[in-house]
Design a binder for these strands. Structure first.
Lengths: 162, 162
DNA sequence: CGATCTACGACCGTTTTGGTCTTGCTTCCC
DNA sequence: GGGAAGCAAGACCAAAACGGTCGTAGATCG
């Protein structure tokens, strides 16, 4: 499956939305501090996703330092950093937790299959490739889709340039 | 979490094991047809994984055409193709089903969020990169670990600490 | 004060995972 | 020919993860 959860999806959509709002507010020369701030409800309505769920996701993102929140009337969330400085990897990790492609690699690097898991090492490299791939894609890239993609493999070896 | 299931892990381990057995049998000049065939129980014992579960996984793999099975006494499973010709992607897809990184991309290409899922397209590219990454790694590569690692993508804006 | 909004934790139904059991069919070997 | 060893397949089940809701509390602005 190797798929990310709906929550992560929602989170990315929300971030992208906020990035667009920030850009708009920027052009209008709005107050920098809260430029593009939007309430959870607004975003939820824009994408037709459950408001309460989105709220929780945004809270998580805020706790992770990716968003700044402002309570009270006309409050809401805004990007804590420029969209180009927030990677999709950070978002996914904040929402879905640390990503480890194989089940035997834990945070402690220990494998529950102890000695006999012979496959751990090669998969860890795959894992690293994916994280660096995701790290290379920022929220800004979602708005303006990335055109330079990792090239497919060569021969039997993994070779990804750029 | 973006992690693959234990079944896929088990499957890969089993394939790797069979690849090693095939290599050994090859060197000994054994009968080509069943070279390196091993029973599910043998493999399960080698890695301390539930035999019945492994059996089911191997059956799936056999149905997918990655393994050939042979019933009866001294039967078992063997690689249907050379290890270098079986990609990890095939294995994972056979076990875990089609892999789509985002929940909104289905087999029909439809997004349950219909028009308002603005994030689908960029993520599909990420998805493609991962599949081609996995496609580039064969079972043989698991035995002889890939040394050439994908270079982190350009624009190292984000530093990942673990 | 009161209308908004975030913050947070408890809770719950559904799906997915991981794993077991049972039954049946093949093939080999004595 | 009859077991024993092995695959094949499906029903079944418990535990965990996922997706989502609710209720309450606290901040902020007008």
């Amino acid at each position: 499956m190797l798929r990310l959860t709906k929550k992560a999806d929602y989170g990315l959509m929300a971030l992208k939305y906020l990035a667009e709002q920030a850009e708009l507010a920027d052009k209008a020369g709005a107050d920098l501090h809260l430029s593009g701030a939007r309430s959870a409800k607004d975003i939820a309505e824009a994408y037709h996703i459950p408001p309460q769920l989105l709220a929780k996701i945004l809270q998580t993102l805020a706790r992770a330092g990716l968003l700044v929140s402002h309570a009270g009337t006309n409050g809401g969330y805004a990007l804590a950093r420029p969209a180009a400085d927030i990677s999709t990897f950070e978002v996914i990790r904040a929402i879905d937790g640390p990503l480890f492609i194989t089940s035997c690699i834990t945070i402690h690097g220990t494998c529950d299959l102890a000695g006999h898991c012979t496959i751990k090492e090669p998969l860890r490299k795959v894992n690293d490739s994916i994280t660096s791939l995701l790290s290379g894609i920022s929220i800004a890239d979602l708005t303006e889709p990335v055109d330079h993609l990792p090239a497919p493999m060569a021969g039997g070896l993994v070779s990804i340039e750029r």
